[in-house]
């Protein structure tokens, strides 16, 4: 495998050095499609296909106790699973550091942008709603950060709000929507040799030296994460922030068009 990888690595770098990326421009996304409401048993759900990367997000709301330091707020719990069926490189067992990093970066963007108003999840003293977002990676072909943020936000935006009546949770029938505000998306860049590309696919991620994810809404940067052992210059990062504000417009418009 190693020899195949080094050939592929050299080939991808050579192409990029010559200003060529297979099938698209350096700052282009692959084709994106989002389907919502695909798991009717869940309160919210979305499937995102970003090229061959396939991510499923499911949302459940449960009665819960508030955190001791925030007695008037509900909880938001975001987790991610790199399912072994998504790639030969993923193993069964407890979440890997990569899965935890993925969930935490998605979480930070959604939390910082205030997509969920946790105070609106308060029911009565000692009783709140917990919102569980589970991100399931079904097929890996790079850029799990952007696909997962799209899936989580799309699922939350189309989540129905269960009712709490006479000590019972009602999950079916005529229900309102979970209260959400705004849209956050992320743009992830890979640095390969001297080149920087948006939305790296699996092959590109296997040869990238470093990675940068920038999450934003229409006004603010909401979360950032640099990954791997390479580095960016300050100038590169400033440019990527500008690119992100430009590129995120079309991502937000995809989410805005979702029907529920």
């Amino acid at each position: 495998m190693q020899s195949v990888n080094s050939i592929k690595s050299a080939y991808i770098k050579e192409m990029l050095n010559n200003g060529v990326r297979s099938g698209r421009g350096f700052m282009d996304y692959r084709e994106i499609s989002i389907l919502t409401g695909i798991i009717p048993n869940a309160e919210g759900s979305a499937e995102v296909n970003l090229g061959s990367t396939k991510v499923l997000a499911g949302v459940k709301l449960d009665l819960d106790e508030p955190m001791p330091d925030k007695p008037n707020e509900g909880n938001l719990v975001i987790s991610a699973e790199l399912l072994p069926l998504a790639s030969a490189d993923y193993d069964t067992g407890p979440p890997s550091p990569e899965a935890i990093e993925l969930a935490r970066v998605v979480d930070r963007g959604i939390r910082a942008a205030g997509i969920i108003d946790t105070e609106s999840l308060f029911i009565e003293e000692g009783k709140v709603w917990s919102v569980f977002v589970d991100i399931y990676i079904m097929n890996y072909d790079g850029n799990l950060f952007d696909a997962s943020t799209l899936a989580a936000v799309s699922a939350l935006k189309t989540t129905r709000m269960p009712k709490y009546e006479d000590n019972n949770v009602i999950r079916e029938g005529k229900l309102g929507k979970l209260k959400t505000k705004g849209i956050v998306t992320s743009c992830t860049y890979a640095k390969i040799g001297k080149s920087i590309v948006l939305d790296p696919d699996g092959d590109e991620e296997s040869v990238m030296e470093t990675r940068l994810t920038i999450a934003n809404d229409d006004t603010y940067i909401r979360a950032m994460q640099k990954g791997l052992s390479g580095s960016f210059t300050q100038h590169e990062i400033e440019e990527l922030v500008d690119t992100t504000f430009e590129k995120s417009k079309s991502l937000r418009s995809i989410i805005n068009k979702l029907s529920d």
């Binding site: 048993n41 499923l56 459940k60 709301l61 449960d62 699973e81 569980f132």
Partner: peptide, 14 residues
């Protein structure tokens, strides 16, 4: 089984 797969509570993962 995914923790969001049933109409009931959020399941435990794993």
């Amino acid at each position: 089984m995914a923790p969001f797969s049933s109409l009931e509570e959020h399941g435990r993962s794993g």
